[in-house]
Write a protein that binds this DNA or RNA. Structure first.
Lengths: 221, 221
DNA sequence: CAATATCCTGAATCGCCGTTCAGGATTACC
DNA sequence: GGTAATCCTGAACGGCGATTCAGGATATTG
């Protein structure tokens, strides 16, 4: 009730939230292998013991952190995809969301970690499978819609969905690793070109959308 | 000189080789995160101390192991690619080598680990860059050759090389993770179809080559 | 306000490896 | 054959962290 407590901001839940956020942060920064309880505690501004108090175990904290990132991704996905847009438009959104322009930027490194974890850990494997299935399914839906509405031509939609999803993974790896041959700025374009080719679309249909007047954000550094 | 020593098989170099081989094995089996000196020693049939004696450090052993895998890959690559074959034939070889049919099977999981490592470690990043550049370059050469000899049609060979390389990475991830949508057996096909499309080839030209009678190697254990 | 449940912390504890070490075997060399 | 270099080993050592713990603060409840 009183404004006395400055450190224990609001409720214990608030603290818990902070720790969870810190876990996400640390996970992205150091990866599964490098994440320490101490890092999380430091970033959240509390003691290591509290991390364990709330999450029982380091793996627990990281697992929940991963879960929250996953949820965010799903949110972004459903929020960004206008359900009544044309297939071409939605395809472009998918390209931008999956590549780098969307709000869910910078998660690719994390997904890569999940892949490696999934090589040996069942839970990670399940998570990845779910994520990927959903993504592929979204893609597949758009493809089918495009074929139905006559704007796409595609002999084998399933194979195309698999290929386009895989291509995105592959490109993301290059980008995440800052490969000079695949700068972040080209990823979306490269992917959309392939998509256009796979779907029998004239390439320009997917090329850079009419460039929105670059007003949105204040000039970066 | 005597046949006395049964354990110390031949020379100390032989022992060292064994340990290196064991390192490769353990690395593939447990990954960077899970590899222990004790594992390597056990697999090589010696003491942990000897591992350190020869390689100074666990990371040293793993690094050299990785190097040897890399060398093997280069060897396989140059051995498998007939320099005077047609571009189409060489493209198929690339597809099979990079996918799973070749001798360099099962390394993909390892490369994935390298990717993740490369997110934070400069040496890994350099290794990956080299490997990838070489691979992409090989691909690019074949593409250019094909274009020159008139069998391929390709507007932007560089982009195509990047895309086909990335697609292979992406497909490999699915295969390594045993994604039911991308069984190992389909990977080569999926990739070759994309290659055919990218290069303006009738798909059947790259479809399953006449099935070589499976005689080459003695059945492995 | 007392009693109780919940939070939170600093200071242990404890297991797990990587690495070191002192010395025993083996080999190479003269 | 003797001596120095090289190999090799089992038995410590030591540090890094995850987890536990005993108890202090804080909130909740009646």
């Amino acid at each position: 009730m009183s404004t006395r407590t400055s450190l224990a901001a609001k409720a214990p839940e608030e603290r818990r939230r902070r720790i969870l956020a810190a876990s996400v942060e640390v996970l992205k920064e150091k990866g599964f292998a490098g994440a320490r309880i101490a890092d999380i505690a430091a970033m959240a501004g509390t003691s290591p013991a509290l991390v364990v108090y709330h999450f029982t175990t380091l793996d627990g904290a990281l697992a929940e952190a991963l879960g929250s990132v996953e949820d965010d991704f799903y949110d972004d996905l459903s929020r960004a995809l206008p359900p009544k847009a044309t297939a071409v438009e939605r395809l472009r959104v998918i390209g931008e969301l999956g590549c780098d322009t969307g709000p869910a930027v910078g998660n690719w490194a994390l997904w890569m970690e999940v892949w490696v974890r999934a090589l040996r850990d069942g839970q990670a494997r399940a998570l990845r499978r779910a994520l990927d299935a959903r993504w592929r399914h979204t893609l597949r839906e758009v493809i089918d819609a495009g074929v139905a509405e006559g704007s796409f031509t595609c002999a084998d939609p399933q194979a195309t969905a698999v290929r386009l999803a895989a291509l995105m993974d592959g490109l993301a790896v290059q980008v995440a690793l800052r490969d000079p041959d695949v700068p972040e700025s080209r990823m979306t374009g490269l992917w959309l070109e392939s998509a256009a080719a796979e779907l029998g679309l004239p390439a320009h249909l997917l090329a850079k959308p009419r460039r929105r007047p670059p007003a949105k954000r204040p000039a970066p550094t």
